[in-house]
């Protein structure tokens, strides 16, 4: 059992231990879909939603697996749940907003292999959070992801107009930006634990 207060969990998952900039999780979409701010924001929303659902399911599964004494099945069950949730979200977005579906492209099914989601499920189990703590944790982790990806998309939109040497364009430039952003986020270190 873990008795961290909900606000501590929120600040920690969203800012101090930001999943992208401090734990290096979800780097692939972070580099891949961060070209435009609008797409980045929506990607963040989709990830946050999948995270909430996955966290809820993972909590239930973990309790069930502990009850039948088979914790070694945890990883397999978690990933199966995440894969089906992503499938569901994919169908939903395709139906509701085909434009968004096209702009997210291959990165939508790839949410399955977005490590942030599996990491949320695993970390909440390791930390022994109760149900409410789990949901707050998942929500703030998603918010942190959205924050990081939107910030970097904003920076990249500006830099696309700048005159940079040809050799650094692309991933290398984005990585340097991410490094600087990561230093900036270290400034939050004093907040929460």
């Amino acid at each position: 059992m873990n008795d961290q207060s909900l606000s501590t969990i929120f600040v920690s998952a969203c800012l101090t231990n930001n999943f992208v900039l401090a734990y290096f999780l979800g780097i692939c979409p972070f580099l891949g879909v961060s070209g435009k701010m609008q797409t980045a924001g929506r990607m963040g929303a989709a990830v946050t939603f999948v995270m909430l659902v996955a966290s809820l399911c993972a909590y239930g599964i973990n309790a069930l697996l502990l009850a039948i004494g088979a914790p070694y099945l945890r990883l397999i069950c978690f990933i199966a749940v995440i894969a089906s949730t992503v499938q569901l979200v994919e169908m939903f977005i395709k139906k509701v907003s085909p434009a968004l579906f096209r702009s997210l492209g291959v990165f939508l099914p790839l949410i399955t292999t977005n490590c942030t989601i599996l990491a949320v499920a695993l970390f909440q189990t390791n930390k022994g959070y109760d149900l409410l703590q789990c949901l707050v944790y998942a929500f703030s982790a998603g918010l942190g992801f959205t924050l990081a990806i939107t910030l970097i998309a904003g920076l990249r939109e500006k830099l696309a107009l700048a005159d940079t040497p040809e050799v650094v364009r692309g991933t290398a430039l984005t990585l340097v930006l991410a490094g600087i952003l990561s230093i900036a986020f270290m400034g939050f270190a004093g907040l929460g634990g």
Binding site: Y23, V167, V176, G179, S182
Partner: peptide, 25 residues
Amino acid sequence: VVMALPSGGFFTLALWLLLFSALKR
């Protein structure tokens, strides 16, 4: 110290990628 911190990871990878893209060019 910055190299051992998360931001160091981003910078180091950026350096290696730069080297590789320079070689390719």
